[in-house]
Write a protein that binds this DNA or RNA. Structure first.
Length: 492
RNA sequence: GCCGCAUUCGUCUAGAGGCCUAGGACACUUCCCUCUCAAGGAAGAGAUCGGGGGUUCGAAUCCCCCAUGCGGUACCA
C-alpha cells in the first residue's frame, strides 16, 4: 500500500455545518496520510450554487483546526495543485467536458427540466428505472441547430456504454460489479456552466494526483460512473475505499442526515461545533471517531494521536455501518478529562465559565480541580458542579431536614457548624476532623450532618465533597450561607 | 420497483477453517469504598455468530439461497 506516494483528500461540499459523518471521513483520510507520510489535501466542492451556505467553510476550517487535523494543501495554505475551491476551476471542467464531446464520449443535451421530471415520474417500477432516456444522444445536426436557435442552454452528458458491466475495485469489498445498462447518461456539465460532482471529482482527483479515495459508502453506487470517466479520459484509477456509514444511536438511518431525538426527548448532537460547545475535548472526539468503523485489535481503545497514526490500518476498517454511541463518547471524554494535568484542566474550565459569564480566577479554578475532576463528563458540566459557588443559591427550607433529620436537629447541625467554622483553621484536614467530632457529639449520622450542610452551602443534595467545597469557598461566604440557612429554618 | 453494500452480546467491536465451551469496551446489575454524586476495586448477566442449505474430519470464518437493514436511483453532493 505504500508503493505509491500517498495523496488523499477530504472534499466536503459547503452546504451546511461540518458533522460527525464528515469528520470520520476527514479523520480517516488524515490518519492514512500521516501514517504513510503522505499529503492530506482539503478541497472545497462548491459546485452547487443553489445549496451553497456561506457559513459552512469557516465552520469547517475552524472545526478541523480545533481537532488538529491539519491539511497540507487547500484553503489558507495553498499548494502546487490549486486552486482548491472547485468554483475556481470551472474552466478546467469545461475543457475536459468539451474534450469528451469532441471525442464522441459525451454529448449536449437540450432536454428541459420539465421533460426530465416527466420521464422520472412516468417510469417508476419499470425494468429500467434509469432516469434519462438518452433522447439527445443521437440528435441530428439540424435538431441541434434548432435547439440552439431557441436559445436552450444545453448540459453535457456522458455517453455511458450501453452494454457490458463496469467493475469497481474497492479495497475493503473487492470487486463490485455493475451493469452498464443500469447506468444513466449522467450530466457532466450543468447548464449554468458548473460541473456536477461526478465530473469535478474525477478531474480534480486526477489533476491533484490523489492516490487513494476514502469516502463515504453512499458513493459506492456512483463509482461505476467514475470508473467509466477515468476510462474515457484514459487516466489511472486511484485506490478506492468506501467507508461504512455512521448510523444514529438507534441504528436506523444515516447520522446527521436529519436530527434525531434521544430517548429523553433532547436532540442528539451531530455537528462538530455542537460537540465543541458542549464541552467535549478534541482529543476525545478524535479518539472516539477513529473507533467508529475501525479498531486496531481486540483490546486497544485509548490512543493518543501518535498511536492512532502509528496503528491506523485501512485494511482493518470495518465494512458494516456503525451506530454512534453517545454513552461511549461520554465515557471516553470523561476519561480524557481525568487524564488532563491540573493546570491544563483548570485553564479549560476557566475558559468555559468565563464564556458563560462567570467571574473566576485561575487559582480558584485550580483549587476546584481535584474536587471536580472525576465528576466531569464534559467541560460544560463544571457549571452544574460548582455553580453554587459562583452565584446566589435557592432552595426550599424543607431540604435542610432531609435524610430523616428533624427540624430541631437540623438547627443544632447548623449551629454546630457555624461554631466550628468560626474557630477552626480553614484547611481540609482540620475542618474534616472538627466537623466529624461534631457528628459524634450530636450522635447523628455523617450523611445527615453533611447532608444538611450540603443543602445550606450548595442548595443541592449532590455536590463535590463538601469539606473541600468549604475550603475553596472560604470562611466568610460559607458562614453567611449557614446563617441564611438558620433564617430559613426559623421561618419554616 | 431496480441496482449495490452489509449482517458476531442492547451498542462499538476482536475474530481472516481447529487457539472460540466466541475475547475486549460502553451501557446494565450486585457488592466494596463512601458526607451526596462520581471515580476506583470486585463480581455478574448478556451473542448457539440473521435464517436455511451446502463444502470439510472440523465453519462465526469458504460457497449458494432467503430475510432484514442501509445506501443509491437529480442540471445535490
Amino acid at each position: 500500500m505504500q508503493t505509491t506516494h500517498v495523496r488523499v483528500r477530504f472534499a466536503p461540499s459547503p452546504t451546511g455545518y461540518f458533522h460527525v459523518g464528515g469528520l470520520r471521513t476527514a479523520l480517516f483520510n488524515w490518519l492514512f496520510a500521516r501514517r504513510h507520510h503522505g499529503q492530506f489535501i482539503l478541497r472545497i466542492e462548491d459546485t452547487d450554487r443553489t445549496r451553497y451556505n456561506p457559513a459552512a467553510i469557516p465552520d469547517l476550517l475552524s472545526s478541523l483546526s480545533w481537532l488538529g487535523l491539519n491539511w497540507d494543501e487547500g484553503p489558507d495554505v495553498g499548494g502546487a495543485y490549486g486552486p482548491y475551491y472547485q468554483s475556481d476551476r470551472l474552466e478546467l471542467y469545461r475543457q475536459y467536458a468539451e474534450q469528451l464531446v469532441a471525442e464522441g464520449k459525451a454529448y449536449r443535451c437540450y432536454c428541459s427540466p420539465e421533460r426530465l421530471e416527466g420521464l422520472r415520474k412516468g417510469q417508476p417500477g419499470g425494468e429500467h428505472s434509469t432516469g434519462y432516456d438518452r433522447h439527445c444522444r443521437h440528435l441530428t445536426a439540424a435538431q441541434k441547430a434548432e435547439y440552439q436557435a431557441q436559445g436552450v442552454q444545453p448540459v453535457i452528458r456522458f455517453a455511458m456504454p450501453l452494454e457490458g458491466v463496469t467493475v469497481a475495485e474497492d479495497l475493503l469489498r473487492g470487486q463490485v460489479t455493475f451493469e452498464n445498462a443500469q447506468q444513466d447518461d449522467l450530466v457532466l456539465l450543468k447548464s449554468d456552466g458548473f460541473p456536477t460532482y461526478h465530473l469535478a471529482v474525477v478531474v480534480d482527483d486526477h489533476l491533484m494526483q490523489i492516490s487513494h479515495i476514502l469516502r463515504g459508502e453512499e458513493w459506492l453506487s456512483s463509482t461505476p460512473k467514475h470508473v467509466q470517466l477515468y476510462r474515457a479520459f484514459d487516466w489511472p484509477m486511484p485506490v478506492m475505499v468506501h467507508l461504512p456509514t455512521i448510523l444514529d444511536p438507534s441504528g436506523h438511518g444515516k447520522m446527521s442526515k436529519r436530527k434525531k431525538q434521544a430517548p429523553d426527548g433532547s436532540e442528539y448532537l451531530t455537528l462538530v461545533h455542537e460537540f465543541r460547545e458542549a464541552g467535549y475535548l478534541p482529543e476525545a472526539m478524535v479518539n472516539f471517531i477513529a473507533l467508529v468503523g475501525w479498531s486496531p485489535d481486540d483490546k486497544t481503545e485509548f490512543m493518543e494521536r501518535a498511536d492512532l497514526v502509528r496503528l491506523f490500518d485501512l485494511s482493518k476498517v470495518s465494512k458494516a455501518a456503525a451506530a454512534f454511541s453517545y454513552d461511549k463518547l461520554n465515557h471516553m471524554n470523561a476519561a480524557y478529562i481525568r487524564s488532563l494535568g491540573a493546570n491544563d484542566l483548570a485553564g479549560r474550565l476557566q475558559r468555559v465559565l468565563l464564556a458563560a459569564g462567570y467571574q473566576v480566577d485561575f487559582m480558584t479554578m485550580l483549587a476546584w480541580v481535584p474536587l471536580v475532576r472525576e465528576r466531569l463528563e464534559t467541560l460544560e458540566d463544571i457549571e452544574e458542579l460548582i455553580g453554587f459557588s459562583l452565584q446566589p443559591i435557592e432552595y426550599a427550607a424543607e431540604q435542610l431536614i432531609a435524610e430523616k433529620l428533624d427540624r430541631e436537629t437540623a438547627g443544632r447541625v447548623l449551629a454546630s457548624a457555624i461554631e466550628v467554622l468560626q474557630r477552626t483553621e480553614f484547611e481540609e484536614a482540620a475542618l474534616e476532623a472538627a466537623l466529624r467530632s461534631e457528628v459524634e457529639r450530636l450522635a447523628i449520622k455523617a450523611r445527615q450532618y453533611f447532608g444538611c450542610l450540603r443543602t445550606a452551602i450548595t442548595g443541592k443534595s449532590v455536590s463535590p465533597p463538601l469539606v473541600g467545597c468549604l475550603v475553596v469557598m472560604g470562611r466568610a461566604p460559607v458562614l453567611e450561607r449557614l446563617q441564611q440557612a438558620q433564617d430559613k429554618l426559623a421561618a419554616l
